Simulated assay, not measured.
Amino acid sequence: MSLHVGEIAYTNTLPFFFELDRSSLEQHGICITQNVPANINHMLASGELQAAAISSFSYGKNEKDYVVLPDLCVASAGMVHSLLLFSKVPINKLEGESVALTTSSETTVHLLKIVLKRFYQVTPCYKQEKPDLANMLTSHTAALLIGDDAIRERHADAPYVYDLGQLWYEWTGLPMTYALFAVRKDALESKVEEINMLHQSLRKSYLRTAADGYRQISRYLERKGMASLSFWDMYFEALLHQPTSKTEQGLLYYFQLCYEEGFLEREVPTLSKWRPTTSVIKYKQ
């Protein structure tokens, strides 16, 4: 039986996958599927995947079923450049206004709702839309885009553009974690060697891409035409791909606010972390 792994099809997780030896992983029974965060989240929750890079909110919603792979995350302490709210009015004037939400991710949608209600005391009317900025702003006062969709539209002609990573950091003083790597608990015992290999490979890929200041990966992305080399240098410089006590503190605070707002059914006071081993699987609560 193979270990089915989900890859988020956004550049913020690319350092973990850029240097993977995919053919070697396949030979060892590790199969990788790429999709947008919302679909990857669903596939892991349903058991179609056994491990995946997932939205942070999806971990909070399913934490009883998951463990987190250590040393891997996507976070920022300030601007993230790919979670953008485009608005026709100032953010503090969005009370009762119509805000279009991307269908691509749950983490950012709930982050926006928290930022607007808790920090700006405004509650708009939300509606989910496909991530097409022009269409979104035709019918709505503001629109939320994430990932590569946001990067493509970063120079759009909108009166106000807000970076949610920056807003979160300004109000909390804490980093925000957008994605984690999770493994289903029911796959731990039967897939120990594959999980070990996956974890080591993801970390090795990240370390290799970071070793040259992300220059190789930035050149690769520049050739794809989405943004300039200087943008990608700035983009990866802003991201945190290794968790710290501060990133965990920020993530748990995000979960706390999600619970208080009714977005999560249960509190998430800690992260269940997988401990790499070649014998008996252990994880801690």
Rank of each mutant, 00 (worst) to 15 (best):
G6S: 02
G6P: 05
Y10I: 09
T13M: 10
F17I: 13
E19I: 00
R22A: 08
S24Q: 13
Q27S: 07
Q27N: 08
H28D: 01
C31A: 08
I32R: 08
Q34G: 11
V36S: 10
V36C: 08
P37W: 00
A38T: 14
I40F: 00
M43S: 15
A45K: 04
A45Q: 02
Y59H: 00
K64F: 06
V67T: 13
L69G: 05
L69E: 03
P70Q: 02
L72S: 08
C73Q: 11
C73A: 12
A75W: 08
S76W: 04
A77Q: 11
G78D: 04
L85E: 04
F86T: 10
S87K: 07
S87V: 07
I91M: 02
G96I: 01
V99A: 11
V99C: 10
A100H: 14
T102V: 09
T103P: 07
E106K: 05
T107M: 10
T108V: 13
V109W: 09
L111P: 12
L111M: 08
L112C: 02
L112N: 04
K113H: 06
K113N: 10
I114V: 13
V115N: 07
V115F: 06
L116C: 05
Q121H: 12
Y126W: 09
Q128W: 14
E129Q: 08
E129Y: 05
D132L: 10
M136L: 02
I146Y: 09
I146C: 12
G147H: 02
D148M: 06
D149H: 12
I151H: 08
I151Y: 05
I151F: 04
R152Q: 10
E153Y: 04
E153N: 12
H155W: 03
D157T: 09
D157Y: 02
P159Q: 11
Y162K: 03
G165D: 10
G165H: 09
Q166C: 07
Y169R: 03
W171M: 10
T172C: 01
L174Y: 09
L180W: 07
F181V: 05
K185E: 00
D186A: 15
S190Q: 15
S190E: 15
M197W: 09
H199R: 11
H199I: 07
Q200D: 13
S201I: 11
R203W: 15
K204V: 03
K204G: 04
K204D: 08
A210S: 14
G213Y: 01
G213P: 06
R215T: 15
Q216I: 14
S218T: 12
R219L: 13
R219A: 13
L221I: 12
K224R: 15
G225N: 07
G225H: 07
L229S: 07
F231P: 11
D233R: 14
M234P: 07
F236N: 06
F236C: 02
A238L: 13
H241E: 05
P243R: 00
K246A: 15
K246R: 15
E248L: 10
G250L: 01
G250N: 04
Y253I: 08
Y253Q: 13
Y253G: 11
Y253F: 13
Y254H: 02
C258K: 05
C258R: 06
G262I: 09
E265C: 13
R266I: 08
L271W: 02
S272Y: 05
R275T: 01
P276F: 01
V280L: 00
Y283M: 00
